[in-house]
């Protein structure tokens, strides 16, 4: 990851941070390449935010080292600040100011042109809310505005702390488009989320965190494939008897409940073609393993966000 073609934007080595008896971050190492979209995911209290804050230079680690764009972010590194953009978990706005005024104020703090404010509003789709005060914006609009504030000075590395938390599905999807647009501009993105499905869709690589440790780190597809979990083929109940289902080629296990019949298989193609022959495809759903299954496999616990 540190070759010259794809140099590392972030290198974290064995970082630890304890609050009293609680090891919030317990030996985290990770490397993020320039231009990479990297997700840290895990349930609440996993240590995602603390890890992010240490990398941003907002907290000092008890031990371990952090290199951000080749420099140490702690103590407050003023040379580094213009090159990083941080969206905070809470929505940190000046009270009573409109969306455009917020952005213009931050533009001045970074000594960039006030015209950037309108560009950013357009990027996050808030042009029609430019003159709306921050307290009159919806949750999704506030999230998008805070991302715009993080991008106002065109930073190389962008940190986003749960940007999609507490958003309705439509707002989440709008935000995904924004995040993809940022990545297309060649930015390195490090973000935290507790939505596993979202990380699977957006991230080049993810680190799964729990209790201050990284349990696994790779591309989402690689993690899921490595799990070697069966595919589940789900049918409407009554479309096939349990006995018939068990006799299907490639069927490993069959369960049924009041609503549906689930066939576990490692040969989904065989099962599906056999089902097609029997015209038993009513209510067909095919579920492959997800990061949730990876989490369950790693921790032995169901994933709850």
């Amino acid at each position: 990851m540190t070759d010259t073609e794809n140099p590392a934007a972030i290198v974290v080595e064995d970082v630890r941070k304890a609050y009293g008896d609680l090891n919030a971050v317990d030996g985290v190492s990770l490397t993020v390449a320039e231009g990479e979209f990297f997700g840290i995911l895990g349930p609440n209290g996993a240590g995602k935010t603390t890890t992010l804050e240490i990398i941003e230079g907002l907290r000092e680690p008890d031990s371990g080292s952090v290199r951000l764009l080749g420099e140490s972010p702690w103590p407050r590194n003023v040379a580094l600040l213009p090159r990083i953009g941080v969206q905070l978990q809470a929505t940190a706005f000046f009270e009573k100011l409109t969306a455009r005024e917020q952005l213009r104020t931050f533009a001045a703090l970074y000594r960039v042109s006030a015209d950037r404010a309108d560009e950013m509003l357009e990027l996050v789709g808030l042009t029609d809310k430019a003159d709306t005060r921050e307290d009159k914006l919806s949750g999704g609009q506030r999230q998008r505005l805070s991302i715009a504030c993080a991008l106002i000075h065109d930073p190389d590395v962008v940190f986003l702390d749960e940007p999609t938390a507490a958003l309705d599905p439509q707002a989440r999807r709008n935000l995904w488009d924004v995040l993809r647009a940022i990545q297309e501009r060649g930015k390195t993105i490090l973000y935290t989320t507790h939505y596993l499905d979202e990380a699977e869709i957006l991230c080049d690589r993810v680190a799964i965190m729990d209790r201050g440790r990284i349990l696994a780190m790779d591309a989402p597809a690689t993690l899921v494939r490595g799990l070697d979990a069966p595919t589940r083929v789900i049918l409407e109940r009554g479309s096939l008897s349990t006995v018939d289902a068990e006799e299907l080629p490639g069927a490993d296990d069959v369960t049924d409940d009041e609503l549906s019949l689930t066939i576990s298989t490692r040969k989904p193609a065989d099962v599906l073609s056999a089902l097609a022959e029997r015209r038993a495809l009513a209510g067909l759903q095919v579920r492959t393993a997800t990061l949730e299954d990876v989490f369950l496999d790693l921790t032995g616990r169901e994933y709850r966000a």
Partner: peptide, 17 residues
């Protein structure tokens, strides 16, 4: 107090000011 609570101070601290 309000800027600290709303993390505006933290946001400012992340800017080169």
């Amino acid at each position: 107090v309000s800027w600290r609570k709303k993390q505006v101070l933290r946001r400012i601290r992340l800017a080169p000011v």
